[in-house]
Write a protein that binds this DNA or RNA. Structure first.
Lengths: 246, 246
DNA sequence: CCTGTTCAGTTGTCAGACAACTTGATTTTG
DNA sequence: CAAAATCAAGTTGTCTGACAACTGAACAGG
């Protein structure tokens, strides 16, 4: 057995591995069941109790386990796949792959124009600064199911770069970039009646029901990198959130 | 100065206080700014570094701070109020109060009937077990804005208890109960066209756009306590989620 | 039967230490 | 002089061992 004191290349992999192991353990444990005590679990997973507790905190924060002093740690509700809800940001493309839904990109447009007032404010730009707009329609089984629009400052991503590398997700494009580090996205959720241009893109009637996400993506430095509208045809996707009691 | 080693009544208040203090500190710090180093911050907040780090994990998990080994901890995006998104479960009633929206309960029904197949499965009941159904319409400025339906096993909450204590939220009712401890809720989000009964309740046209939440509330033991449909008239509420990059 | 006590096991918190990493200044080297 | 290598200080990541606070069950005494 390898002593965990040896100098491994660090690269955040210990936390990461631990997180995955613990997540798997929680998933394999039935709701209501107790976990091994912290000292035992720490020994078994070959980490210190402090490190284990930090990892546990992430799951507690998300409501998957519940700790009671003097009693133990209990699994609350594995409920299928952990972290497949909205709390983790992933591209629609990745999401579709995960549920084995074959999709295609049926139309694709890149434009360049001045930002309007709302866009400038959200993206923290001077008025009339230039933005790049990427929009496309995603189809499953030859049927349009989502209409995606991304709006970015021109200095983040220019039109050429998009035309070269776009594979169905601005998010994936940004994630591969070395010079920027993505952090999180604030996503507003709403239901609307389809406006004519949306209806046309999705092949539905004007006024039909649409689920829309309005999201702002931030870098680790707190800069707004991307503002997007995502219009989903109800029924093809199931979005859920795990909500903790306050 | 008081030594923090004295025996205080514990009651989870240390973690709680620390969480609030840290949350406030993060909110007061501009996006991109660095926090004090962990040893300094721990000394200032009068907790050990280990405890501080656990608290920081909760904020990191939610994407509010970002830690870089060897560099420091940075605030990502305070963005107004922390934890006001969907990740925290609160009643519509509480939510309305928080944004100073005066609301009233314009209709209210309690019924008792056998569970259908879907309900029995979700609530983990035998088929044809009895359930209690509570439904009501919430109005703001004399206009219906939401239609709420709660479905509970009869042994959790009986009709009499509801008639006595209902103040506009089954969640608040359950939260006050000593014999059960709430944990989390899995909430599915969708957009639908209003069915006739919903349209009637909300005073809109059949087929109008409605935002609907389908939620299952779980206890700490992993039991499903409540299954609910919440129909929201778009525009009166703003729901958002903070999504971490995976 | 009921009540209070004890005890083992659990999570909560602490202090101090070292490892790994980053950054910028300093020194060395070509 | 310029570039590369080294160093130093400061930061987060992790470990160890310890004690406090709490819970639940077993136990003793009424």
């Amino acid at each position: 057995m390898i002593d965990n004191h040896v100098s491994l290349p660090n690269s955040t992999s210990l936390s990461q591995r631990l997180h995955e192991q613990l997540g798997q353990l929680i998933q394999e444990t039935q709701a209501g069941e107790r976990l091994l005590s912290e000292p035992k679990l720490a020994k078994q997973l070959r980490v210190s109790r402090a490190t284990l507790r930090e990892a546990m905190r992430t799951f507690e924060t998300q409501g998957f386990i519940h700790r009671r002093q003097g009693v133990g740690t209990f699994v609350v509700h594995p409920s299928g796949v952990i972290e497949s809800g909205l709390e983790i940001l992933e591209s629609i493309h990745t999401m579709a792959q995960r549920i084995d839904l074959p999709v295609e990109m049926v139309s694709f447009e890149v434009g360049r124009r001045a930002a309007d007032k709302k866009e400038a404010e959200i993206l923290q730009l001077e008025p009339d600064a230039n933005i790049v707009q990427v929009s496309w329609v995603m189809a499953a089984e030859s049927r349009p199911v989502a209409f995606l629009v991304d709006i970015l400052p021109e200095d983040i991503l220019n039109a050429e770069e998009i035309n070269e590398n776009f594979n169905g997700s601005v998010l994936d494009l940004l994630a591969r970039r070395e010079d920027i580090s993505l952090s999180n996205s604030r996503t507003e959720i709403n239901a609307v009646a389809a406006k004519p241009e949306i209806a046309r893109a999705l092949g539905i009637q004007r006024g039909d029901v649409i689920l829309v996400f309005e999201a702002t993506l931030y870098s680790n430095q707190g800069r707004a990198l991307d503002f997007s509208y995502s219009y989903f045809l109800p029924g093809y996707f199931r979005f859920h959130v795990n909500r903790r009691v306050g």
